[in-house]
Nucleic acid binder design. Structure first.
Length: 846
RNA sequence: GCCCGGGUGGCGGAAUCGGCAGACGCAACGGACUUAAAAUCCGUUUCCGCUGACGCGGAGUGGGGGUUCGAGUCCCCCCCCGGGCACCA
């Protein structure tokens, strides 16, 4: 055994050992307690930094722990390999995305292996390979068959810098999630997945997800944005010139039908269909058309920002309030959004802040119809809208009702009268999946002049991405300029036809990869239903919280569709979700803390650290850095600390090799131990107990590592040498042996090596996880704090099983306690066994 | 504005059910070893006051109030930070 901790020598050796023994290769047909441990697969961006490592290290620690607990663990890894960055790089360098992606994959795979993270590499998948995207296309066809994929002209988010459309989920504060460019709205024909058809189920089933963090569920619920209200149809007052209109009612959605008697005007969005026909020939026509044109040009971000002033114009038309039969003016204003509700809003300025602002600005009538039950409102005094619930006034037959009663009754009335009824709205929009880019799975659709839109037959999949394309940014997919790809024959009539040139959003690829791991190379079907039903839902999914909405919502949607198709029995993919926090580092530029990223220049490469300290040090520090679900700041000195600890551990074993090798593990008889030995034995068992609890609970790796450090400190306190008593040697060996087992999921290389040095056969993963001896946890004597009125004034030592009476008298007879209780009346004594005694006293005023 | 988190030493963070606040690590300081340095080992470190000293007393978990023998933990009010949603009708 070497004196100095030889991490450089042992780490590659054990990595090879795990690979050769195929310890992480899983036969999925095998019975047994299964545990599917899944880490979010990475986008092959180039090279990993230590921030990425947190994900894999946590997952690997969990997998190793579960293996030692006797589970059959499935831990696969793959690559989310399609995507914009590779294509943007191709535009700049001319290098084909396939080549750069493959190269990045091999760099990152090497890094993951050098971290000591183990996977079933036979199941490795890359979404950019035809054997994978063939089935992404197949799912598209299935969605198309079921009416869940459709093409529609719609106002969409356009990123001028990426030159592509984006899903709503990829627009953050009106800017492109990737490049930060302000998003424009364009009216384009695009492909959508009908996720809104699943809105209610996606919302309801959040309740089933006990193993998910509350905050992720809340974020998804917010995103789905269910809102209950009332639909009301407002009849259009016929044109004064007797001309015809494109429609005769304007439906609107409201959550506050109780305020309808205060509706003094109605507003429609500038995108509202056929506005031009509504105003044709009216004096307002030019002004309205000009206003609409201007609004449509305004970027969405500017239009919807809070500070934006509420502009709008009167159309010259009126609609009829269905409750009062009174006409109210119809306005166009861009504070109303076409995407939400019906694109039309009944405006009640007295009871809605936005309508209040708008009405004040444009001199519209304000009518008070809800009274504050606490304090009578007078319109003249009001500085802002009263938006709370209250009692209805001036509301015809509904006057006097409370808002909540009124909402019910008035909605029922609308239904009876046939001009409306209850309605539920969702904020969630359909998922826009087409991208005008090359590096993605081609949408398997053909356009034929005769037959129209024709899906590519399943047996002609995959629609392969052509290689010989030119990468230039010109707002349409490079595929469009590739005639070999574009020109095809119609699968239906055999005539000349054109292919769809758009590719799919990469979130489609990642919506089903966790199913493909069960049969990664099956070229007959997308997934192996039987194996999926056995292994899913995923027992533990681990990844970054940045995917709380996007990926996790899409994957849930996919699973539900597959469930409805009869392909899988489960309808939620991930039973437990763990979202780890980001690793941050101060930026060298401004000294502020940021998430590690190449562009900030604050990344720490694992390669250098592993070279200098070894993978186990990096792993141990990464787990110790803080609560794994929270963000953490990387500290180079913290890494040193972890390294120091492992060196100390190595030296401990090195210094006591003889003692350790000669003592055979066996039952330890506590009665034969002296107090020091008994204390170490107790601490060993206590460490086993709490580390197991930490891992079974919410992955408290930071406290688990702390407990291991404490155990080594405790081991240090017991002096042992060649001539020590056998019992002492046995306790010492027992403690170290268990420490090595306990640390093995975190620092597996050193654990394997020391395990062998202790005289055990290689392969610590085959050893059972230790269990604590409950008898050993008990202390014979405990120290109790004695409080007087809640302040600690003394300490007493008592037998652990001392009666309350004994403790009481012992406490009262303590010198220091006497000093404090002298001349005071003891009112009450509280004894908390094993912890403290509190004596409440009262001083007599003398 | 609404909905989630969170606020504890110089720093990262511990603290089952309400029971000794500051585990563990970092940093700093003092000492040992060394010709010296590094490494290592030992010790000190919440703040304030008193003491020659072993010590003693007081305050203390963002602020204020409450419940309790006892509050970082429970209740009420407020402040600050992070995240999500947001002209959503």
């Amino acid at each position: 055994m070497k004196e100095k901790y030889p991490f450089k020598e042992i780490e590659p050796r054990w990595q090879q050992f795990w690979e050769e023994r195929r310890l992480f290769y899983t036969d999925v047909s095998d019975a047994g307690k299964k545990y599917y441990c899944l880490m979010m697969f990475p986008y092959p961006s180039g090279a990993l930094h230590v921030g990425h490592g947190r994900n894999y290290i946590i997952g690997d620690a969990v997998a190793r722990y579960k293996i030692m607990r006797g589970f059959k663990v499935l831990a696969p890894m793959g690559w989310d390999a399609f995507g914009l960055p590779a294509e943007n790089a191709a535009i700049n360098t001319g290098r084909h995305p396939r080549d750069s992606t493959r190269e990045n994959i091999s760099i990152m795979k090497r890094q993951i292996i050098s971290w000591g993270c183990c996977y079933d590499w036979d199941r490795e998948i890359a979404t950019c390979e035809p054997e994978y995207y063939k089935w992404t296309q197949w799912f598209f066809l299935k969605f198309y068959e079921r009416g869940l994929a459709y093409k529609a002209r719609a106002p969409v988010n356009w990123c001028p810098s990426c030159a592509t459309v984006l899903a709503n989920e990829q627009v953050v504060n009106g800017r492109c999630e990737r490049c930060g460019t302000a998003i424009e709205t364009r009216e384009l024909e695009q492909w959508f997945f009908r996720i809104t058809a699943y809105a209610q189920r996606l919302l309801d089933d959040l309740e089933k997800l006990d193993g998910w963090p509350e905050r992720v569920k809340t974020m998804q619920a917010n995103w789905i944005g269910r809102s209950e209200g009332t639909r009301l149809d407002f009849r259009l007052v016929p044109r004064p010139d007797g001309g015809s209109d494109p429609f005769d009612t304007i439906p609107c959605f409201t959550t506050r039908v109780d305020t309808i008697y205060g509706c003094t005007y109605m507003v429609i969005a500038p995108e509202y269909p056929h506005i031009d026909e509504l105003v044709r020939g009216l004096p307002q026509e030019q002004e309205v058309l000009e206003y609409v044109r201007r609004s449509l040009r305004t970027p969405r971000a500017a239009r919807t920002s809070e500070s934006a002033e509420k502009t709008g114009v009167f159309t010259g038309r009126y609609v009829v309030n269905p409750y009062t039969s009174e006409p109210v003016p119809l306005w166009v204003a861009d504070y109303v959004l076409m995407e939400y509700g019906t694109g039309a809003v009944m405006a009640v300025p007295a009871h809605d802040e936005r309508d209040w602002d708008f009405a004040r600005r444009h001199g519209l009538k304000i009518k008070l119809v809800i009274q504050n039950p606490e304090r009578t409102l007078r319109l003249e005094d009001m500085q802002q809208a009263y938006t709370d619930f209250g009692l209805l006034v001036d509301s015809g037959p509904f006057s006097g009702l409370s808002s909540s009663e009124a909402i019910q009754k008035m909605t029922a009335y609308a239904e009876e009268q046939g001009f409306g009824g209850p309605q539920v709205h969702y904020r969630l929009r359909d998922w826009l999946i087409s991208r005008q880019r090359y590096w993605g799975a081609p949408i398997p659709i053909v356009y034929c002049e005769k037959c129209g839109t024709v899906p590519v037959p399943e047996d002609r999949l995959p629609v392969l991405l052509p290689d010989n394309v030119e990468f230039r940014p010109h707002g349409e997919s490079p595929l469009k300029r590739c005639p070999e790809f574009m020109n095809t024959t119609c699968p239906r009539c055999g005539g000349a036809a054109q292919r769809e040139s758009d590719t799919m959003d990469t979130f489609v690829d990642s919506s089903w990869y966790y199913l493909r791991y069960l049969s990664p190379h099956d070229d007959h079907r997308a997934i192996d239903s039987q194996a999926c039903n056995r292994w899913l839902p995923v027992d533990q999914y681990i990844g970054g919280v940045e995917h709380a909405i996007l990926h996790l919502l899409y994957a849930r949607f996919f699973t539900k569709v597959l469930h409805d198709m009869g392909l899988v029995e489960f309808d939620e993919p991930f039973a437990h979700l763990f979202t780890q926090g980001m690793i941050c580092k101060r930026s060298p530029k401004d000294g502020k803390l940021y998430k590690m990223s190449k562009s900030r220049g604050n990344v720490v490469s694992p390669d250098k650290l592993i070279e200098e300290y070894g993978a186990d040090t990096v792993r141990l520090y990464t787990l110790f850095i803080g609560p794994p679900e929270k963000d953490a700041e990387w500290s180079d000195q913290g890494v040193e600390g972890a390294y120091r600890f492992l060196r100390r551990l190595w030296k401990k074993v090195y210094d006591h090799q003889d003692v350790l090798r000669e003592s055979v593990p066996g039952k330890i008889d506590r009665r034969l131990l002296d107090p020091e030995e008994r204390e170490l034995y107790r601490q060993t068992n206590s460490a086993i107990q709490s580390i197991t609890d930490d891992l079974e609970g919410d992955f408290h790796f930071n406290t688990a590592v702390a407990r291991i450090m404490e155990l080594l400190n405790a081991i240090d306190r017991l002096s042992v040498h060649r001539d020590s008593a056998p019992s002492r040697k046995a306790v010492f060996a027992h403690a170290l042996r268990n420490l090595i087992l306990l640390i093995s999921p975190f620092a597996p290389h050193i654990a394997e090596e020391l395990w062998v040095q202790l005289g055990n056969p290689p392969g610590i993963l085959k050893v059972d996880w230790p269990t604590a001896d409950p008898d050993a946890l008990a202390m014979e004597e405990v120290e109790l704090a004695v409080q007087i009125n809640g302040k600690v004034r003394a300490r007493i030592r008592v037998a652990a099983d001392a009666s309350e009476e004994e403790i009481r008298s012992l406490a009262l007879s303590d010198e220091r306690v006497k000093k404090w209780t002298e001349g005071a009346e003891v009112r009450k004594i509280v004894v908390v066994p094993g912890r403290l005694v509190n004596i409440a006293t009262r001083r007599h005023s003398s």
